[in-house]
Each structure stands twice: as C-alpha cells, then as structure tokens.
Amino acid sequence: MEKKKNILIVDDDETILDVIKDILELKGYSVDTARTGREAIQKTKAKYYNLALLDIKLPDMEGTNLLSKIHRDIPKMMKIMITGYASLENAVDSLNLGADAYLMKPVETEKLLRTVEEKLKEQEEAESMNEEKVSEWIKSRIRKIESGVS
C-alpha cells in the first residue's frame, strides 16, 4: 500500500479544521492541524508534510508570513492558500511568496480535493523527474565507463 501523504491544515477556526480533516482523512490522507502560525512551524519542523493548507489570516501572524517561512525551510512542500478575503494583490503576493495555489473560502469541497490531488501529483512528478534525472545520469556514467572513454 502506498504511503499516506501527510497534509497540514492551518486555520484558527476549529470547525473548519475538523471538517476538512475529516474530509481529507476520508480521502485517505494523513492529516494534522495547527491553529496558529507558531504551531504550524513547530509541526513542519517535526514532520514532513507533502502539502499544507494555509489560512491567510492567523491569530499570531499573517498567513503570507507563515507561507514565506515554510517555503524557505521546506520548498518541496505544496502550499495552498485559502482566504476569506479575496483580492488580486493578496493572490499575487501569495503566489510570489511560493504558494502553489490560491483558493477562496468557501471553497467547494470537490474543488478543494481536486486542487489537493493536483498539487500532490505535481509534487510526485517533480520528484520522479529528479529520480529520472539521477538514473539517467547513472546510466550515462555507466555507458561512458563501458565505452572506456572516461
């Protein structure tokens, strides 16, 4: 069985955390939640998450701040911003700071799941691209050695 993907949800609204956690777990993800930016940072340090859903407004810091921090520390992690307060600026800022998607509350569950899936798939592809490159590199080395050129 394939290893469960880890997802971190950061939101100050407990009900949202619960509902989305339930939905994502129903879809087979391993889900952790954090209510504050600080808690989120601690959790990302302690464990690897494939993807994080970040609310743009948090009690202790701006969601964008948290985003830039996480992006700096764990660039491979997929980050989806969810905001109740949509603006183009916000969106552009978020994307520039390393967000991989930008969703508006209330986001339809199907759309949320679709986005999560898409992003995780993108992550997988990126990783496999790296693996391919490595194996390609090894293959080429072997070919060189075999041909005795080196």
């Binding site: 609204d13 989305i20 209330p106 986001v107 339809e108 569950t109």
Partner: peptide, 9 residues
C-alpha cells in the same frame, strides 16, 4: 465565510 466553509465541508 469560515462557517460557510465548514458547512460546505
């Protein structure tokens, strides 16, 4: 929006 989000979920 938050409760709406919860409701949708």
């Amino acid at each position: 929006r938050n409760p709406l989000q919860s409701m949708l979920g």
